[in-house]
Design a protein around this nucleic acid. Structure first.
Lengths: 216, 216
DNA sequence: GTCAATGTGTCAAAAATTTAACAACCTCGT
DNA sequence: ACGAGGTTGTTAAATTTTTGACACATTGAC
């Protein structure tokens, strides 16, 4: 499938292509050129062609790209042609919010259970999905195929939980706790969503923007 | 304050430095060298020094960096020395989850109101913070200083809301809707949190990881 | 069927980012 | 007060990423 290493910079852009192509598809657009796409996406056409060519030649000279075909192919590249079962560790507000986000399911990401240590939550459900106690985790993982664990718990507990999950055979973690999990050398893929980092970036740009306005 | 343009690559790393320095501070560490920090953060010492030097010389030869001082300075760079009032547009699960996330307040980001169009939510509160109807937005913005609007609503409504917010004088948007807001040329700073993009990246890396295991 | 227009894949150049190297300087033990 | 050891700020090299350019394939009008 993959041959040479593809830079994460490219990978970061792929979901965005997928999104735009999905919209074109919904709009009934059949074909598109890198040039037209570059205008709507506000990136260079060269970058689009370069990015796509990392994975193969999906276009045709003189024609462009077939929207449906390209959309499907990028979907395959991103693994969206297969189902991913998710468990959510930490059934607090964020965990529940994610569980309620139906859109993920359309992409093949299906939440099959939530876990928490708070006994008050035991047996309750979110969108029909049950909240279990952490003690039940080993059995649950043995009985169900769990592809991804979403970590939505306080940072103090995140690292220990992550190690525990890896022990139970989980190979992918979607980490919302604002720590960097110390899982080097472990056979596990981690994707971080650091909301406070994001806010701080925004804050930096706010201050910068104000400054530039004052001095121009 | 800022002189030459600093690349967003650097800015993306600053919150992470801030986080690690905060932890060192909590641990009572007084000073640290770029070398020691590089080991814990798993980046090169050279990058740390280079990054920090974009903003000035915070260290001292033969000594290293004073943790508290550096933490404070990075905080200032990121604008964490001032308060940022946030309104949340869309009081659904995600909006409420964010509102409940107390940690932001410690960083100076204070949520002062939620807005929705669902009449059933009118007057309810989340962590003591009131949910208003969208109709009240103009008056609310006139009476309160609103620095950031967090957009936690369906993508169909995101773009129109964003334009409306800009009209009302808001200059910063924290966008959770998975569309790219079309706000070029507007005097507004946008920070995106595209959760599904993040999930797709994770998915890509899962597939890649599996593939590499099978072929090694 | 021909040909201008279109548009990809790819190679090369340019720009940006990261890493390495080191001179200058500070610390701290003696 | 001195000097060995340590550490920054900074310059230069290496690497990565992005952009530009164009040969060549395909389309679609006539």
């Amino acid at each position: 499938m993959q041959e040479k290493e593809i830079s994460q910079a490219v990978i970061r852009r792929m979901p965005r292509y997928y999104r735009y192509l999905g919209e074109l598809l919904d709009d009934g657009v059949e074909r598109i050129s890198s040039n037209d796409l570059s205008r709507t996406m506000r990136v260079t056409a060269s970058q689009i062609r370069q990015d796509l060519n990392n994975f193969g030649g999906f276009g045709q000279q003189g024609y462009g790209y077939n929207v449906k075909y390209l959309h499907d192919e990028i979907g395959k590249i991103l693994g969206l042609n297969q189902r991913h079962n998710i468990i959510v560790i930490g059934a607090g507000n964020l965990g529940q919010a994610i569980t309620n986000y139906v859109k993920f399911e359309q992409l093949g990401f299906v939440i099959i259970g939530l876990f928490d240590i708070n006994p008050a939550l035991e047996g309750k459900t979110v969108r029909g999905i049950r909240i279990h106690m952490m003690d039940d985790l080993p059995e649950f993982c043995a009985r169900n195929q769990v592809d991804i664990a979403a970590l939505t718990l306080p940072k103090e507990k995140a690292d220990a939980s992550a190690h525990y999950l890896v022990e139970l055979g989980i190979h992918a973690i979607w980490n919302f706790a604002h720590v960097d999990l110390d899982l080097i050398d472990q056979d596990v893929v981690v994707e971080n969503v650091h909301l406070s980092d994001s806010l701080m970036q925004l804050s930096y740009n706010i201050v910068k923007n104000r400054f530039e306005k004052e001095h121009s």
